[in-house]
Nucleic acid binder design. Structure first.
Length: 482
RNA sequence: GGCGAAGUGGCCGAGUGGCUAGGCAGAGGUCUGCAAAACCUCGUACAGCGGUUCGAAUCCGCUCUUCGCCUCCA
């Protein structure tokens, strides 16, 4: 535990991780804005943080994981113009904004469940925390960090010296020259950002506030909810790289401006999914939704594909790359199946060196590609031993325990269960029974050298999408993945 | 233009001063009734040019290229 290193985006170095309170970790991850189906980029982000949380828990920490749902305040355009994303979608679909939010929230969790992403401990909604957000704005006004103009409240960037420290954008004025469009004169400084926005008559979502009817700015919700559930200083705050500026810089300014305390101890940012080298994004229209992807690939193959690259590296999407991952994952699954069916032999195989390497990889800023490489090495060693004289009972148990722990509990890539393949559990166990029978019949046929029958069983199952593999331990079967 | 990241063998993708990454694809072999699987063997890759060093993919400089952020986006 003490060895865990985390790359902190704020210091731009790997740091030894020590939680504020020993044995307890608070983590906040920016959740989705629910106005459309999730795509591969969301999968990368939430799978990465899922593994972070799993590893922290595995290391013995009690983790409180907060991941918000943004259902208001996220504008489609410039902070001054633009339409609320949820509101716009509601208008398009001619339904209530809350219907939009609920529909896509459910869709999001469906997809995450299939990816094996565990649910957060708390999933707060922005609309459910309007009072908290108003209170935070008040606090900022009292401390002179915010000012009101015509029902809009802005954060004064000039009042907060450290503004931009996360993104490295310290000279805001200079960076803005040339790109700035349509500066609203009511702001004292063009870089000031909205905490609370006045709502026009036609605005669908609005609430009462000390400054009239309005709605919260996008950045505000994360500060308010993070501090409500995790305290004024949180251990880890995660999100996508593209949110460093302005979103996370704004969060820091709001939170630290209000409390005078450090907001986040470790900032973690995951990299993008690219398509042909260009970022996959909703606005670019080059995204693949997870629902589309799941029709062609086992969700756990997608998870495995994601974890084969580091969370801070960009991941290039291509069918060929995913297919290569599918084959690789199948190899690990086959090893796992083989191990479960193995009977005790003579040799000794101590998984300890692999456990150590796996742990080192994960402790090194969650290096899942290396951790997976260790699993492949282990798989090879195990298969070689089973091919030879088999391994004894303690070795079998230790190996099985390691695989279940590393590939199952920590990485979540084994087993390829019924849940991932959409079958009900009852069906799955019934299928197990049927397959067992077929394999027995086939084994008997082979014993009698009735290869016509044994091959018929194999070929017909192949057509039905089930593959049979013969090992020293007997035959095993699996559904073909893609 | 400003801030940041990166260029690794056919493809994907780790590594970061000397010690095998790994996966996929490919070639040969062992095993098997055949096939698949598994196992064994095979690739001496690090954008280019300089420099530091006994030694660099790894450090420094320059050049080229790509990508992200600077307006919404995981």
């Amino acid at each position: 535990m003490s060895a865990l290193q985390i790359y902190n985006s704020l210091s731009r170095t790997k740091e030894t991780f020590t939680p504020l309170t020993e044995g307890r970790v608070g983590i906040y991850v920016c959740g989705p804005t629910v106005y459309g189906h999730a795509h591969l980029g969301h999968a990368k982000s939430y799978t990465s943080f899922d593994v972070v949380v799993r590893w922290l828990r595995h290391s013995g920490c009690r983790v409180k994981y907060v991941q918000n749902i943004t259902d208001v305040g996220h504008l489609s355009d410039d902070a001054d113009e633009g339409e609320d994303k949820i509101g716009r979608q509601a208008r398009k679909e001619k339904i209530d904004p809350m219907e939009v939010a609920q529909f896509y929230t459910r869709s999001f969790y469906e997809d995450m469940d299939r990816l094996g992403v565990e649910r957060p401990s708390i999933a707060p909604l922005a609309t459910g925390h309007i009072p908290e957000q108003i209170a935070l704005v008040r606090q900022l006004m009292e401390k002179g960090h915010a000012y009101e103009v015509h029902g809009n409240v802005y954060f004064s960037v000039a009042s907060f010296p450290g503004y931009g420290k996360l993104s490295g954008r310290t000279d805001i004025e200079a960076s803005q020259s040339g790109t700035r469009v349509d500066v609203r004169s009511e702001k004292r400084d063009p870089a000031d950002f909205a905490l609370w926005k006045r709502a026009d008559e036609g605005h669908i979502m609005q609430w009462d506030s000390p400054w009239g009817r309005g709605f919260p700015g996008w950045h505000l919700e994360c500060s308010a909810m993070s501090m409500k559930y995790l305290g004024e200083t949180v251990d880890i705050h995660g999100g996508g790289m593209e949110n460093k500026f302005p979103h996370h810089d704004c969060e820091i300014a709001q939170s630290e401006g209000a409390t005078g305390k450090p907001y986040v101890r470790y900032w973690m940012h995951n990299n993008m999914v690219t398509v042909d080298g260009t970022k996959m994004g909703k606005s670019l229209g080059n995204f693949v939704t997870l629902k589309e992807l799941f029709e062609r690939f086992d969700p756990l193959v997608i998870r495995f594909f994601i974890l084969q690259s580091h969370y801070r590296s960009p991941l290039d999407f291509s069918e060929a790359a995913i297919r290569a991952s599918a084959t690789g994952l199948e190899k690990l699954r086959e090893t796992s199946r083989r191990l479960e069916g193995a009977t005790a032999g003579k040799a000794v195989l101590d998984p300890e060196p692999f456990v150590r390497r796996f742990t080192e990889a994960m402790d090194d800023d969650f290096n899942t590609p290396v951790a997976i490489a260790v699993l492949f090495d282990f798989s090879k060693a195990l298969n070689a031993a089973l091919d030879a004289e088999g391994i004894d009972q303690p070795s079998l148990e230790a190996s099985s325990a390691f695989l279940k722990d590393a590939a199952g509990t920590v990485l979540g890539i084994l087993p390829g269960g019924a849940a991932a393949e959409g079958g009900a559990e009852g069906d799955a166990s019934r299928l197990d029974g049927v397959m067992e029978l077929l394999l027995e019949i086939r084994a008997a046929a082979r014993k009698n050298k009735d290869f016509a029958t044994s091959d018929l069983i194999r070929d017909r199952l192949q057509e039905a999408g089930i593959e049979i593999k013969d090992t020293r331990e007997g035959a095993s079967w699996s559904k073909k993945t893609s």
